[in-house]
Nucleic acid binder design. Structure first.
Length: 123
RNA sequence: UAAAGCAAUCGAAUAAUCGCGCUUGAAAAAUUUCAAGUGAGGAAAGUCCGUGCAUUCAAGGACAAGUUGCCGGGGAAAGCCCGGACGGCGUGAGCCGGUGGAAAGUGCCACAGAAAUGUAGACUACCGAUGGAUUUUAUAUCACAGGUGAUGGUGCAACGGUGAGGUAAGAGCUUCACCAGCGAUACUGAGAAGUAUCGGCUAGGUAAACCCCAGCUGAAUGCAAGGUUAAAUUGAGGGUUAUAAUGGCUGUCCGCCAACUUCAGAAAAACCGCUAGAGAUUGAAAGUAAUUUCAAUACCAGACAGAUGAUUAUCUAGAAACAGAACACGGCUUAUGAGUUGCUUUAUUUU
RNA sequence: GGGCGAUUAGCGCAGUUGGUAGCGCACCACAUUGACGUUGUGGGGGUCACGUGUUCGAGUCACGUAUCGCCCA
């Protein structure tokens, strides 16, 4: 289980549209501070990777740079959480999706990091 | 020194740790690791113009439709750029301008006003010289014929304006002075146009109303264009290997896993197009300039749930603006913090 | 990435050759009623999204900007 160190390369990302909609359909979600976490089904096979997606919709804000900024912050927070092994039960799920909304747009890195840690705890 | 104008430039920097896309090489072995290199903008934006490129239709001519509109030059082209003319704004450096034709034709010009385009005049008004009538020839008189367009509390605009002469009253009245506008001729200029002289005295505005003239344009769809390869049906996508096929789910039995129907999805993948170019940087030459030509140098993003981030320290204006490539390019427009450089103007002070 | 459309009173909408901006609901006042509602009469409320231009004069014409919505997989 050493793949944690190299997490967030392409292969650990959620990619297919079908996979996204499948995760949404489980309806297992948590919300805090403008970020919503969707979790998929529990794993059947321990050897498969947990895949992650980050979403900030175009309706959240018009400017691409602000949406990109939030996605990067969320991704970095998740990466650091993995590295420090503060991930709790998150690896039991096949997929996770973080959805950023309007309230999270102007937050800085520390705030986003705290929110994401909190969300991971609650899983 | 202050306030302005124009042009250009920059678009925070350095170090450490962790991390990402792409390319190349090596290892491992079939997607991982290591190393090296490289990795957003002046607007990448808006999609307002114009191209290349691709597919489909058409292919000759004319009309229609659209579009542009001072002159010359540049440019692949452009609602583009440069230089000039004219007009407007500013004390000035300078800035702004969709700037052909209203004397081919049509429409419109509310309200007000006598009248809104027809060299008008019903009405109001002035005159009664000329002719006529009354009368006594003259003088005088007139709801006469007629003359006039100066007069009219209008209006954005009233058929050139102001002053003088002139007349019965008046009038550009081929009377005068100055001004405005129109036409012709001459000269200057490549041309737009400018200057001078002469002429005739008037021709309202609107073409971002129809229109006329001149120039230009095959039409439609946009890289999600389009091409190649592979696969053929899922219920959480794909690949490889191994094992089982009286198997799996369940403690056991029943039941379910075929097919059909219904519901919910999906039509998924890989490669090409894809970045060597109406390019970039530097230098030289031609030109007032836009721009063009020549030489040298290097190859400098290419993703597809979509790569540039986080932390710390130094620095600073104290965690700097506007803002993120998605086939590519030329423009235009809009957003933008703090500065820096050059030239010029105006004002003040000192010498 | 590409292509369209809309913006007028608190809300929903009209507004053609450019000439003082209207309708319905809502709101306010009065009348009717013992009171409320209904009904009737009257009234208020507008930067015509914003800016620049054309014109004597722009909701209307032209150009630019902003916001909102729709379509193409």
């Amino acid at each position: 289980m050493l793949f944690w160190e190299n997490m967030l390369k392409k292969q650990y990302r959620l990619k297919n549209k079908s996979a996204f909609s499948a995760t949404y359909r489980v309806k297992n979600s948590f919300h805090k501070g403008g970020i919503t976490l969707f979790a998929g089904l529990q794993k059947k096979d321990e050897n498969t990777f947990t895949k992650v997606g980050f979403v900030v919709s175009k309706k959240t804000h018009k400017r691409a740079i602000k949406r990109n900024r939030l996605k990067r912050l969320m991704r970095e927070s998740y990466r650091l959480a993995l590295k420090s092994e503060e991930i709790f039960n998150s690896q039991k799920y096949m997929s996770l999706i973080f959805v950023g909304t309007e309230n999270a747009l102007d937050k800085n890195f520390n705030e986003v990091q705290n929110i994401i840690k909190n969300l991971l705890k609650r899983l």
